[in-house]
Write a protein that binds this DNA or RNA. Structure first.
Lengths: 199, 199
DNA sequence: GGTGGATACTGCCCTGTGCAGCATCATGCT
DNA sequence: AGCATGATGCTGCACAGGGCAGTATCCACC
């Protein structure tokens, strides 16, 4: 097994550092807490702990619920050291995959109606995600949630995501206003690119 | 070959809709123009046009530069129709992979010094990317660049990326100020999570 | 008892990444 | 002319990751 851990490995190690988890729980918790900044398919979250065990950074314990087996993973001391060491390394640059922007960028291959629909969809999806974030923010006032002692870190993350999500919705709405002046996707009429950068 | 095209397929089709390209040129142009919102490894950009040809959406023409072969790809009429059809579909949600945020989120596995270094690195990297974007924005005033007739679409995209990138740097600097009050990564002292959401 | 959702997990096929490697061309310098 | 370097051109390979579908057992409820 390749000894160099990925960000995913370290993210899973991070979750294990909080407590031990069954694989199912771990996958669910990863999707609850990491989804906004490190989205990973459930399929992979079943594989990752096995790799940590193989690297000596976690242990696995087979249990039975009736006739149904389940695996519970726990971090090792070596795992904690590895996590701490990783935290001292410089972060990789963020990457964004914005399908909607691909559609905007090549909008001249389609119609102004299509472009408006794309921008509208981006704005609406952003609203939904913002509402979800607001729900998470209200949870910071509670102590009957998992890991209340980590709320300070949660708050930093949520602050970022709130601002980040707002950019999508606000930009899409702004763009909808701009394209009102356009004659078509290939003819912006009197609209000037520099208008995008004026106050 | 699977008939359902990916966003990457359509992005490449979008580039082909502008002009024909050798594979090398296409890979370079993709990395110049799509890198901010649809980053793809060069390795894949060599495969993708082949798949478009197999689907009848592009043609390939073998040429020779001396003894060195090269392939030039062009879009077909079917390809243009496929692109236009795709532009009418709703966009997939954006996904962000923010390695730095994974490190912030699990900062309690490390030290306050490490957290500060992570935040500092995020801020600096953001500055560099912002400077790059500013360079692209000044290009919008020029006509001696590729595809000046598409500046209006470029401007929409650049407006988004400017706002998007600013969020990283501003947030990281804000977070650096917040953690000044913290005693350690596990003890925020008197700092309250709700401080993250006050004006 | 039957149903539906939760818990628990994996095989499979496909997309995508980083890396390394190979080859030829073109340009500039000595 | 010869050489070095960067550009142009491309691919094999091993690994990371995603979506989907499938299998099985448990648990709560009607």
């Amino acid at each position: 097994m390749n000894d160099s851990l990925t960000t995913t490995s370290n993210a899973v190690l991070g979750l294990l550092s909080l407590r031990s988890w069954s694989t199912y729980e771990l996958a669910k918790q990863a999707q609850r807490s990491l989804e906004w900044f490190w989205p990973r398919a459930e399929r992979k979250l079943y594989d990752e702990p096995k790799r940590l065990v193989a690297a000596g950074l976690a242990t696995s314990d087979k249990e039975m619920t009736g006739a149904r087996p389940r695996t519970v993973y726990a971090i090792t001391r070596r795992g904690r050291h590895a996590l701490r060491r990783w935290l001292g390394e410089p972060p990789a640059p963020p990457t964004l995959e914005f399908d909607g922007m691909v559609r905007v960028f090549f909008a001249d291959g389609g119609t102004l109606e299509q472009l408006r629909a794309t921008l509208g969809a981006i704005a609406e999806a952003s609203d939904i995600r913002l509402a979800e974030l607001e729900g998470k923010i209200t949870e910071l006032e509670r102590v009957d949630v998992p890991f209340p002692e980590r709320h300070h870190l949660n708050a930093l993350a949520l602050r970022f995501h709130l601002d980040h999500e707002r950019v999508f919705g606000e930009w899409a709405r702004w763009a909808l206003v701009q394209v009102e002046e356009w004659r078509s996707t290939t003819d912006p009429g009197r609209w000037q690119p520099r208008q995008a950068f004026e106050p």
